[in-house]
Write a protein that binds this DNA or RNA. Structure first.
Lengths: 159, 159
DNA sequence: ACATCACATGTTATGATATAACGTTCGAGG
DNA sequence: CCTCGAACGTTATATCATAACATGTGATGT
């Protein structure tokens, strides 16, 4: 699987591997990988894009896995909490993590036209931020980086 | 004014200077610094913290400047669009920019306990992100960085 | 076996954030 | 003094998220 996400790749392998990895990790950490949680992760992997919670809920509802908001929010809380899924703050949307298992600082490239999202990685305190925080005594626990711009396809169309 | 925001500082000067600077810039760029827009910026400067739109709206309403959501959202759109105010995505909140006029990549340090927010700056492509984007042809137009953790006061209390 | 406890789920209701749409006002420039 | 665009007032509604409480279910200790 590519690391940046705007290229083609073998998609069914992505899904199968990611699900297997999640399953294994849940087993190892004694987490319950319940049907709803598994299906939400699968949906996000299948679609391979950022999705709103209610959009996911529609699919679950059509499959009889629950029709009320808490169903999907609970699954997402679990998946986000354990790093299987990331929340894209700018979009109120969710996307499957493409670096499962690795401890990383996710960075997102979000196309403002087609809304495609690619996950990259960045370093934790590459510049002034970590230093500035340290100087004032702020303890950083988590960082999210979200970049907006144009994906290759949209940049070409717009040009 | 300090750059990181968790120290004491002369607050009335902050406000007066920031308002004057905004006024001047609007004049220079032929933007309309209307009463509602000015008041929203003032409120954010006075409170010197991240505020929700409806929280700001309550103050506007009490002062007779409008009582419906579009009033505050329009003012915020203008202020955010021209860089006078930043939106904190993680919190659905807004805060006055502490580096007005400078072209910068804002980075926020958000205390998860007391919700205080400090604005720092970071570099545009300190690490792998800019490089990775460039390699795939993604054109970055804007970046936001939001870090969650503990501010000095809360870190001490919790310890 | 069975009590019990933690955790997950089902369901109803509501809270919180944000925008669409449409008519009116007001000031700058022709 | 007309016209045009930007801002504003207002109503309604869309979108995102969680509180609260009842119910089910599986692991564990006895």
């Amino acid at each position: 699987m590519d690391s940046i996400g705007f290229q083609q790749h073998d998609h069914s392998h992505c899904i199968a591997e990611a699900i297997a990895a999640a399953e294994e990790r849940c087993k190892a950490e004694k987490l319950q990988f319940t049907p709803a949680r598994r299906r939400v992760l699968e949906i996000l992997l299948e679609q391979h894009r950022a999705m709103g919670a209610y959009e996911i809920l529609e699919i679950l509802a059509a499959e009889g896995l629950g029709s009320q908001p808490p169903v999907v929010y609970r699954a997402l809380d679990f998946l986000v909490g354990h790093g299987f899924v990331h929340r894209i703050e700018r979009m109120n949307a969710y996307t499957a993590c493409t670096h499962p298992g690795e401890d990383h600082v996710p960075a997102f490239l979000i196309c403002r036209l087609c809304k495609a999202v690619a996950e990259a990685e960045t370093v934790l305190d590459g510049g002034r931020l970590g230093k500035a925080a340290h100087e004032t005594g702020f303890v950083i626990e988590k960082i999210v980086v979200e970049a907006e711009g144009l994906c290759p396809a949209c940049a070409e169309t717009a040009a």
